[in-house]
Structure formats: C-alpha cells, structure tokens
Amino acid sequence: MLGFGILKGMSVTLRRFVDTYVGDLGKFPWRYRSRPVYKRMGITERGAFTIQYPEERVAMFPRYRGPLMLLTDPEKGITRCIGCGLCERTCPTESIKVTRAEEKVDDQRVPETYEYDMNTCMFCGFCVQICPQDALGHSPELEMGTYSKGDALILNLDQMLELGRKHAPGGVWPLEKEAEPS
C-alpha cells in the first residue's frame, strides 16, 4: 500500500547490493587473481555468487560424468578392458565401437581398437555402469571445445588410455577425491 511494498522490496535489493561489497572485503586483494576455487559459496553466505570462470574454477565432484576414459590397472600396467563389447551394445546412442584383439596380453584379453564418439555421446553413464571389468570411467575433463565437430571429438584407444592415466592413476572410478581445478 502507498508504495510500502515497493520500499520493502527495495530494501532487499539494497541489502544484497551492500552484501556483495561486504563479501568482497574479505577477499579484496585476491578477488581477480587467478586462483582455484574448490567449492561454491556456501548456502548461508552472502555476497556475489558468480565464479569468475577462467581464473576461478570449481572442483569437479568425483562422480562427475565427463567424456569417457579407459582405466589402466596400476599393477599390470595394461588396461582392464577385455574388449567384450558390452558397452558398445548398451549405449543408447551407439557412440562406442570396440573390437577385440586376437592375442591375449598377460593372460588377459585386450581391445584392439576402441572408438568413442563424443559428438553423439550424451554422458548417460550406462557404459560405465555396465562394464564387467570396471574398465571405463568418466574423466573430469571440462574444456572439450573444438572448432569443428567430427574427428576432433572422436577418441581412439590411445587417447582414452591417456585420459585414464592422467585422471585416474589409481585405476578406479568414481575418483577417490574431487578433481582439482586445472
């Protein structure tokens, strides 16, 4: 009535306005420096909420579902994948193609080729869950942008193993801890 509702609302926005400056005081000199941020601002904290992306990065949760990677068994030094092709058959978008190698390595069957097409993958995670060997994982890779779709987004066996060695040296997924922001 008589603009009191308006004034009430304006007090809320003013409070937020002041809060962002109060919140900034705490991190004043570092605010625009390049630094990793491990967690988003807490639920009850007040102040500016946005993350200044290229400088600040939030950690990825261990279960974050990014592009696939093939995990390597740290003891044997070869991939856990036995080329069974279950992942290929369970994928709803037909993004995976696996062939099995003729010879065994270390008494274990291995894939000969593995082709993973990130163009069509929808990161549903079925392939990872179905894998009998737990040989697949999701890498916490975030910046996957390319200038063209097509080949740049199709990963082969080596690239996937590389990703696996980089992000999951222990050879397990979900990762043990939150992925550090790079």
Binding site: T13, R16, F17, T20, Y32, A48, F49, T50
Partner: peptide, 13 residues
C-alpha cells in the same frame, strides 16, 4: 556495475 551487484554478481570486470 550496480545492477550486477544488486543481482549478486560483479557486472563487467
């Protein structure tokens, strides 16, 4: 900048 601060963000920076 002010609109940004009101909306819990930084505005152009």
């Amino acid at each position: 900048k002010i609109i940004g601060r009101i909306q819990d963000r930084y505005g152009p920076n």
